[in-house]
């Protein structure tokens, strides 16, 4: 579904991405992990076309995304820090996104809006929201259009345990529908029952891309956190 071929990106002197290649097919749930500043968010932004790579190509359903933009209708994106126009309220933001992405064959998925109880605060201005509520809005928007690919950048950061659990359940539900899901997170324990593949990045390089079962067999650990720690110590 998504094929990344040798992309590199440099910000000044910093090599944010260094010859990264990657293939993902639908039905996978991929955890993108690595230390801070290892290029995870840059990789995600490249897939979304927000950052233009210096070299390399990205194919989405076998089409180069460089000259395309329609492919983004198949992506639901939840940014790490959701930033929204300050003087709009939640209802207006949701209405605007529906208006922009509306088409007849899209079945809107308002489950998260209901479960997060956003309907009761539609009149709240974005500037007055807490970090957690912003995350709820971001998550609801990412899932709203029933996209085939979900890209979630630190989805549970800032969410309270109840909301976090709701979101996790939703992710598992969408995974079972055969969607391709990318998750970056630093909280490895919560990825345990969600992900099927692990991508580990460091200093802009892709260190490994393995299925979680392989990883468990190799390290002999059942818990993802321990398995990763095991690998990091070996290097």
């Amino acid at each position: 579904m998504i094929e990344i071929q040798n992309i590199s990106k440099q910000f000044g002197k910093l090599k944010a991405l260094d010859q990264v290649s990657l293939t993902c097919t639908s039905g996978e749930c991929i955890a993108l992990i690595g230390p801070n500043g290892s290029g995870k968010t840059t990789l995600i932004k490249c897939i979304l076309g927000m950052v233009v790579p210096d070299s390399g190509t990205i194919l989405f359903s076998n089409k180069n995304i460089a000259k395309d933009w329609k492919y983004r209708s198949q992506i639901g994106y939840m940014p790490q820090i959701g930033r929204y126009p300050d003087n709009m309220n939640i209802g207006q933001i949701i209405g605007m996104m529906k208006d922009i992405r509306k088409s007849e064959h899209i079945q809107l998925d308002e489950e998260l809006i209901e479960k997060f109880d956003l309907n009761n605060m539609l009149n709240k201005r974005m500037r007055t929201l807490s970090g957690g509520t912003r995350q709820k809005v971001s998550a609801s928007l990412a899932f709203l259009f029933n996209a085939n690919v979900l890209i979630l950048d630190e989805p549970t950061a800032g969410l309270d345990p109840v909301a976090s659990e709701i979101l996790k359940e939703k992710i598992i539900k969408e995974k079972q529908k055969g969607k391709l899901i990318f998750i970056t997170s630093h909280i490895l324990s919560e990825l345990d029952d969600i992900v099927t593949q692990i991508i580990y990045m460091q200093d802009g390089k892709l260190k490994f891309h393995k299925s979680i079962d392989d990883l468990r067999n190799e390290t002999g650990e059942v818990k993802l956190a321990k398995a990763i720690a095991n690998i990091m110590l070996q290097k």
Partner: peptide, 13 residues
């Protein structure tokens, strides 16, 4: 912020 939000949507730059 608004531009960022729009860029992740299916819209041409």
């Amino acid at each position: 912020e608004f531009i960022e939000l729009l860029l992740s949507q299916p819209l041409k730059r």
